[in-house]
């Protein structure tokens, strides 16, 4: 008797569960990388509100965060992401190459290389800048301890490495050889190679290891906001790289789930003044020049070079520098 009652309760609650999920609104899954968590939770709410007024549809956007390449692998292995918003184009290329979930020309489908917001690589130093770090060449100096994640395990850290390389290349008399030697002396000063960006920030800030942390600007600004400007300072180098975290629709998934329209609108909303403003609020550089002007105090002017012009795109940069046996492996030799 007792058990039958229990069964009834169980059955009805199960029914309720399915009923509620059947009546549930459209859902979108945005698979992103680690530091965008705060940005997208605010952006998702804004977009859902706008979508509701426009179409009357209830929308719930779910987000998933992790290391960029790990997230890409999850999508390749079957995580049903409607959109991906990752740290570098190489990881979205991988989604095309392994399984063809989206077309090869995905980066042409949205403005600005499908990167609605950008960032760059800056330095985080301890208050008062005791080691007088002003520019990239100070990172190669003997006696300066540098903290940066391993570019082989952290997609974000590949930008750090490439920025150092691009700086050396832009110096008078710069060549591939000088750039290689320079990058090697920077990485010779690296005593801890964490596997991810947040790990490096912890090592630098919490453990007190190192004199300078090479970081994404948005991470550096966030660290200062969270940990207080009384401990850390940002140093903007004379030249840095334009980091373009790209976004894309996963075609096979949206077509299967019937969410193409809303997914498209979601990504396009990133380019609207409202979306751009939210990106700026969360320390990403807005593409929209009007919105960018509103944040001019937050983002110091810096000469930026792009990966396409200096390195010939991600595929080539990855192959030359980060693949097994590539330049990074060659400069990380036994000491």
């Amino acid at each position: 008797m007792q058990s039958r009652k229990l069964l009834a309760v169980l059955g009805s609650s199960l029914g309720l569960f399915f009923a509620s999920s059947a009546a549930a609104q459209t859902t979108l899954l945005n698979v992103s990388y680690d530091p965008t968590r705060e940005f997208y939770s605010e952006f998702n709410a804004a977009f859902a509100k706008q979508w509701k007024t426009k179409t009357g549809e209830n929308l719930s956007v779910k987000q998933s965060h992790g290391g960029s390449a790990k997230q890409a692998r999850a999508v390749i292995d079957g995580l049903e992401a409607d959109v991906v918003t990752l740290a570098l184009a190489y990881d979205i290329d991988a989604i095309h190459e392994n399984g063809g979930l989206l077309p090869k020309d995905w980066q042409k489908r949205l403005p600005n290389n499908a990167a609605p917001y950008t960032s760059t690589i800056v330095f985080l130093v301890r208050k008062g800048n005791p080691k007088k770090i002003k520019d990239w060449n100070d990172l190669a100096r003997a006696g300066v301890e540098v903290i940066t994640p391993n570019p082989k395990t952290s997609g974000g850290a590949r930008w750090n490495y490439l920025a150092a390389w691009a700086y050396a290349l832009a110096q008078p008399g710069g060549s591939a050889t000088t750039a290689r030697n320079f990058t090697k002396s920077v990485y010779d000063n690296v005593k801890v190679l964490d596997t991810g960006a947040r790990g490096s920030t912890t090592t630098f800030v919490e453990r007190g290891i190192g004199d300078v942390l090479i970081a994404w600007e948005n991470e550096a600004l966030l660290a200062i906001k969270e940990l207080g400007p009384d401990k850390l300072e940002i140093v903007v180098p004379s030249l840095s790289i334009l980091a373009e975290p790209p976004v894309a629709i996963v075609d096979k998934v949206v077509d299967k789930r019937g969410t193409r329209k809303v997914a498209q609108a979601y990504l396009e909303f990133l380019y609207t003044p409202e979306g751009q403003r939210l990106a700026g609020k969360h320390f990403y550089r807005p593409r929209d020049s009007k919105v960018a002007a509103e944040f001019s105090k937050q983002f110091a002017p810096v000469k930026l070079v792009s990966i396409d012009t200096v390195f010939g795109g991600w595929q080539k940069a990855q192959k030359d520098h980060f693949a097994d046996g590539g330049v990074f492996d060659q400069i990380a030799v036994r000491k």
Binding site: N98, G155, L193, R334, K335
Partner: peptide, 26 residues
């Protein structure tokens, strides 16, 4: 991974190499 320092030839563990290869989709 948090305590190792992960310096090539010095303090890298084999599981890290595996993760490194996975990061390259290898």
């Amino acid at each position: 991974i948090f305590i190792a320092g992960n310096v090539p030839y010095v303090s890298e563990i084999t599981p890290l190499i595996i993760i490194t290869k996975l990061e390259q989709y290898d």
